[in-house]
Design a binder for these strands. Structure first.
Length: 448
RNA sequence: GGCCCCAUCGUCUAUCGGUUAGGACAGCAGGUUUUCAAUCUGUUAAGCGGAGUUCGACUCUCCGUGGGGUCACCA
């Protein structure tokens, strides 16, 4: 029999996914793809009270946007009740489980499984040999026969998971560390079922900045929000994969294909990783750089306001925007800081700003005349430039600026064009604005 | 608290007994012919503590400490 590998990802449709959830899917996915295996998606929705309508669909949507897919499913446990009932009846008949007192809801008898009370041992694919005594799940009455169904029609999580894993032929159960202690229960049920025991692997938890398990209640940002902030799906995938795993070499930027190729369970960490968003920007920027330039410009363009989009200058500004962002959402920040408005409208000057040295600005009156002199000279020099491009512009004023002091001259030149304390250099702005507009702005600045 | 797991720079991590303990992010400093951005270079910063084992421990063992997970008729 061939070594077919089949893994599963069983979310409950109760809310939005964060990095923790997706990471579990990703590791399963990577492991399956790497080993020519299959991955099945199965919604664990037996607790109808907790289910959120539509959550399943939005979870699948996230998978899709991240470029992830699954080979089988989605299954819904709520639609498989008959299957669980049959297994329950079978086990009942075999005497491996039994009905006990009334359940809390008063709707029938609960079902317990006979606990062999022994050490349950498995070789965890990540943690190594793990041993937990099944006597450890005694309830307050000292009963270690744990409950697997509220009634014959109402199976509980541990039972449904295991039945499904059994029936679906799951070979590897790869999940978060939070499931370690429930593994012995599941093995005991599996044994009662007469199933083969799959291989288990438990990933360490992802911790929030407060070093507590990442979760809805603990700083976990839905993946959707990262998408909305304009992170690239492939960068997100890259970052998620690096949470608790690394290939052992120094590569940090991966495409999906590279991740599949390099992934291995052996390289998964044994200790929890604290998730700081810091590196995400970096990773995204790297992925941004790999995109074709036209595509990048198109993406930037469509995030610009109408009036900029239609302006002739916009094309020349696109590269400036690109080098200032690490994700699409940063464009909004640039925009709301009015970083580039001066290209499209007359800058609002502040007389003092024309003076480069902050300390000197107090004595404006004195220095201002000098600055105006410089500006006038620059204007004169520029008007002689015929081929108005970056190099020529620079050439024309360079000598003068060097002689008079580059700081004071070039600063004034730049501010006369942008009106801003911080902006791209004056040669670049001049080229973009064009000769006429450049001269006009310099002229305006001298009249302050 | 019981049980399970873990422990290298602020963060993510490399190292599978012998290294000046490496890289990346962040930080800082400097260059890049004015500022910002980008870029280049440099730089700060780590083996939790204590016993062993060994010629030699970050690496192996034990104890302590610290951190995490988990203890439902939830999933």
């Amino acid at each position: 029999m061939a070594h077919e590998i089949k893994v599963r990802f069983p979310p409950s449709p109760t809310g939005e996914w964060h990095f923790g959830n997706v990471r579990t899917f990703v590791f399963n996915y990577l492991f399956a793809k790497k080993n020519q295996g299959e991955i099945v998606l199965r919604f664990e929705d037996t607790d109808s009270a907790r289910n959120k309508p539509g959550a399943d669909l939005s979870q699948i949507e996230i998978l899709k946007t991240l470029g992830l897919d699954f080979d089988e499913g989605p299954y819904y446990q709520s639609q498989r009740k008959e299957i669980y009932k049959k297994e329950l009846q079978r086990l009942l008949a075999e005497g491996k489980i039994y009905e006990a007192e009334e359940n809390q809801a008063g709707t029938g008898k609960i079902i317990r499984i006979k606990n062999p009370e022994r050490d349950v041992v498995w070789i965890d694919l990540i943690k190594g040999k793990t041993k937990i005594s099944s006597t450890s799940f005694k309830d307050e009455k000292g009963n270690s026969d744990f409950i697997i169904a509220r009634s014959i029609d109402d199976p509980l999580y541990h039972f449904t998971v295991v039945v499904d894993d059994f029936l679906m032929g799951i070979t590897h159960v790869l999940r978060g560390e939070d499931h370690v202690t429930s593994t012995p229960r599941q093995i005991i049920i599996l044994e009662a079922l007469g199933s083969e025991i799959p291989l288990y692997g438990h990933f360490p938890t992802i911790l929030g900045e407060n070093k507590k398990k990442l979760g809805k209640r603990n700083g976990a940002v839905p993946v959707r929000e990262y998408l909305e902030q304009g992170f690239l799906p492939e960068a997100l995938l890259n970052a998620i994969s690096l949470l608790g795993w690394n290939p052992g070499d120094e590569q940090e930027i991966f495409t999906k294909a590279e991740l599949i190729e390099k992934f291995s369970l052996e390289k998964v960490q044994h200790h929890p990783a604290v998730f700081y968003g810091d590196k995400l920007d970096f990773i995204n920027k790297e992925h941004l750089r790999k995109l074709p330039l036209e595509e990048v410009f198109l993406e930037i363009l469509k995030r610009l306001p109408e009036k900029m989009q239609s302006n002739k200058l916009v094309k020349k500004i696109l590269p400036l925007i690109f080098e200032r962002i690490s994700k699409w959402g940063d464009i909004n920040t640039l925009l709301s800081n009015k970083e580039f408005d001066f290209f499209f409208e007359e800058p609002a000057y502040q007389k003092e700003l024309l003076i480069c040295d902050e300390r000197m600005r107090k004595g404006v009156a004195l220095d201002h005349e000098k600055v105006v002199e410089h500006l006038k000279e620059i204007s004169k020099l520029l008007s002689d430039v015929s081929d108005f491009n970056y190099e020529k512009i620079k050439e024309s004023v360079w000598e003068y600026a060097s002689k008079e002091g580059r700081g004071i001259v070039l600063w004034a030149f730049r501010v006369s064009l942008s009106g801003k304390e911080k902006s791209p250099d004056p040669f670049l702005i001049s080229e973009i604005l064009g000769k006429e507009e450049t001269l006009k702005r310099i002229d305006d600045a001298t009249k302050l």
